[in-house]
Simulated assay, not measured.
Amino acid sequence: MQDPLKLDVFICFAVYTASHALNRVYKPLLDTLGLTYPQYLAMVALWEQDDQTVSGLGEKLYLESSTLTPLLKRLESAGYIRRERSREDERVVVIRLSEAGIRLKEKAIGIPGCIAEASGRDAADLTRLRAEIVALREALNGSVNLDAR
């Protein structure tokens, strides 16, 4: 019988360390854009769909407002986005890409290919792996006691 308290059998440790390895590959690529990884994710989400609310973006990125707001302030200071109060409901903040933010996409377009190349995996294998990780995330999120959230 295998010891259940060994790091090499923990799926969480494998995912955790893979995440760190991905961040090490991303860092020099994102440094050329002047972005951190969370800022990059926010920009990718905005390139997919501009004109989003802070709460909507937070849901997509699985980030709390207290984490997302400082990140967005830094993107705004860099000139990549604008944060504006909604005309319909002033409690809602809408995020829009600036011209500089739109242009930044062209500089970032090659990053996913660099990550794929660094992984040493083909596109089909990466697609399968991503699907498995998403399924794991959804299963884990579904298993959390809703009352505990």
Rank of each mutant, 00 (worst) to 15 (best):
L7M: 13
A131R: 05
R85D: 06
A139V: 03
A123M: 06
L71R: 02
A78F: 12
R87T: 11
R149M: 06
R91S: 11
K6P: 01
L22N: 10
K60W: 10
C12L: 15
Y62W: 09
A135Q: 13
R83L: 11
R137C: 05
I115G: 01
L104R: 13
Y37S: 15
L126K: 01
S77A: 15
G56E: 09
T32N: 10
A124I: 09
S77I: 09
A100K: 04
E90S: 15
G101H: 06
L7I: 07
C114M: 13
T69N: 15
A21Q: 14
A108F: 04
G113I: 08
T32V: 08
A139N: 05
S77N: 14
Y80L: 11
Q52C: 09
G56A: 14
G34R: 07
G79D: 12
V15L: 14
E59T: 05
D50S: 10
Y62H: 14
E76Y: 03
A148N: 00
K105M: 13
R128A: 09
S19E: 12
S55V: 06
A42D: 00
V94H: 09
E99M: 08
G110K: 06
I115V: 15
W47V: 05
K60Y: 05
G113P: 09
E138P: 00
E132K: 09
E76F: 01
V94K: 08
A18V: 04
T17P: 07
